[in-house]
Design a binder for these strands. Structure first.
Lengths: 136, 136
DNA sequence: CGGGATCCATTAGGATACTG
DNA sequence: CAGTATCCTAATGGATCCCG
């Protein structure tokens, strides 16, 4: 225990207060999960309804769309507006909060775009070195 | 249909070419997974050996540390240096690539720090509205 | 149309024990 | 010290059916 405490005191994740560590994980979990980010990205252009979202986020299932939206709703990252019309209509939209997040995410996507060749090259190389040639 | 087609044409994931979509997911998976980012963050201060990493990343298991390091290694996000000494010593360090990633991540962490109260507040409020009071 | 509920497969990830 | 291998559980997530 004492060792852990000292280690944590010395370098609790590169200067992160470790109090924050916990909730940073939560944010990361949300950002890093399979769909949240995609949904937010799709909503950037403007409000969309449920089925439009489902079609614009390629490959998402109703279940995951529903769950993702619920999470985003709880975190205040999207708003839900139900119009009491004859064919029910519900629109989801971004909030100022998610828009600010989107800026960061956009830079992350930019990073990915810039460096993905590098990563790919490294992976291919690693696979070749890993034990046998990829071809057989 | 026409609405969807237009929406998709307008916003196939916020202007992302959808070719890139795939590898962006990969990057996001790596960044968003439970440990990669923490390991990278801890390595920011300088090279560390296996056991030091394990102690500095609170809660990580040997298994996950090993797997995470392997992934990072394959992607060229860390380097591994084994010193042929009597007690074996292995050091892991960041690369220019991971340092550039760290800048983005830092801003993400900054975002989290700035807005986590907002998110928490929204969650609490959502929980209250959800059907019953949080207290019971 | 906008979901909720259920069933099922895959995976992530922790605990433990063992090795060089 | 620096891992590897195995087992097992919990969470992720897709498919499907159902309902207001």
């Amino acid at each position: 225990m004492e060792v852990t405490a000292q280690a944590a005191a010395r370098s609790p994740c590169a200067g992160i207060p470790a109090d924050q560590m916990d909730f940073i994980r939560q944010v990361l979990d949300r950002v890093g999960d399979k769909w949240s980010l995609l949904v937010v990205a799709v909503l950037e252009a403007g409000p969309l309804r449920y089925t439009d979202l489902q079609r614009n986020v390629p490959g998402i299932s109703q279940r995951m769309l529903t769950l993702t939206l619920r999470q985003l709703l709880e975190d205040g990252l999207v708003t839900r507006t139900a119009y009491p019309e004859v064919p029910p209509r519900v629109e989801y939209a971004l909030t100022p909060l998610s828009r600010s997040l989107l800026e960061i995410v956009t830079s992350l996507i930019g990073w990915a775009s810039t460096h993905h060749e590098e990563i790919r090259a490294h992976r291919a190389r690693a696979a070749t070195v890993a034990g046998r040639a990829p071809q057989g």
